[in-house]
Design a protein around this nucleic acid. Structure first.
Lengths: 200, 200
DNA sequence: GGGTGCATGTAATGGGTTACATGATTCT
DNA sequence: AGAATCATGTAACCCATTACATGCACCC
């Protein structure tokens, strides 16, 4: 999506500071750690690891396993840590969001309020589940013995919590609004059927 | 980014229900209406309009202007409205966010807390400005004579407000945390220099 | 004369998801 | 025998940003 530069390889380097891992592991770890604010597919992970290895930013060794296929374990090198540090020193780029729910709501006059209510209700369910996940993550981090990384992981989990709580509050407010609109449209009492076009 | 389907053309169709517009106008309108949750560049707008016209979803006519170049004004057709309605009936896809600030914070143990504090402070400033923008947008919508679209625009503006407020609360909490960490690291009292690696 | 705004486009580039391909082993 | 999990990878596709190209008119 960005015409220049993405932080995919830096995300991989960062995860490898926690522990040496295989590409497969990285995929799993991403999903259950940074997955809520940073995603990577295997189609990105494997080619990126190859490139990182070619640049000497990670080292790899084959590991034999019993009853399972061989794994290629990657670990970050000193050079890789330098690259990660350099990346951390660059101010983060603001994200350009693409929120399809909001887009559909913005054009909500072009459809039935009932449909929109359904979308918001689905969102409430998923965000409630996400909130619980973030809370669980925070408790797990708190339970662990504290080391250098934990305060930062907590900060990320807190972001998710606070944002989900805010979204749920908005959803409640929005559902009330949409219900009012649905009622109004169903009862054409003094309802003026205004043009939806602003016209000239 | 999505391998299949994006809502770019539907966003354009939706905006054309408000008023017939040129591609140039669409770019401007996007920035000042849906720009906070949906962006399109001219490199997307113009080719998409062409495709929409070829499919008969929009009609175009050239408009001569004095002192300015000609404009090609697009308006949505009946077929275009059908397409938009069909799209609105499909549940919105959840967005996969990519938040670089959170990613850098997650790996915060690999750099100085001072640097991270700077990033969060910049975020506070920009989000405060955004909050004001959303509030201004809401006031403007409220001031306008109400028609079919306004309640939905308000809903979108409220989302921005509530989210920005939440982010600012998180930022305050996070700055307090980071300051504690910075102080702790500066004074190596009984500070155990634990390994940042989880090891095996 | 040169910068800025209006206006429409195209091309290069790069990134990301999905789908496909392969193959071993364990469980049912 | 067949499904599921572990594991690594490639290729097709598509989409989005950026940069480039063009040209007119107005203002300083």
């Amino acid at each position: 999506m960005p015409a220049r530069s993405s932080s995919t390889s830096e995300a991989l380097l960062g995860l490898l500071t926690i522990e040496p891992m295989s590409g497969y592991d990285l995929g799993l770890v991403i999903r259950e750690s940074i997955g809520h604010f940073w995603n990577e597919s295997y189609g990105q992970i494997y080619p990126n690891l190859k490139r990182l290895a070619a640049e000497g930013l990670v080292a790899s060794k084959r590991e034999r396993q019993e009853g399972k296929p061989d794994r290629r374990i990657y670990s970050i090198t000193a050079k890789g840590r330098e690259r990660l540090a350099a990346w951390l020193a660059i101010p983060p780029q603001p994200e350009i969001p693409r929120n399809e729910l909001l887009l559909k709501l913005f054009f909500g006059a072009q459809t039935d309020a009932e449909v929109l209510i359904g979308y918001v209700q689905v969102m409430v369910e998923t965000h409630r589940a996400l909130l619980e996940e973030f809370e669980k993550t925070e408790r797990e981090i708190a339970r662990q013995r504290e080391y250098l990384d934990t305060p930062f992981w907590k900060i990320a989990a807190r972001f998710g919590q606070i944002e989900m709580e805010a979204h749920l509050r908005w959803a409640e407010e929005t559902l009330a609004q949409l219900n009012k609109l649905a009622r109004k449209r169903r009862s054409p009492s003094k309802a003026r059927t205004e043009k939806s076009h602003a016209g000239k």
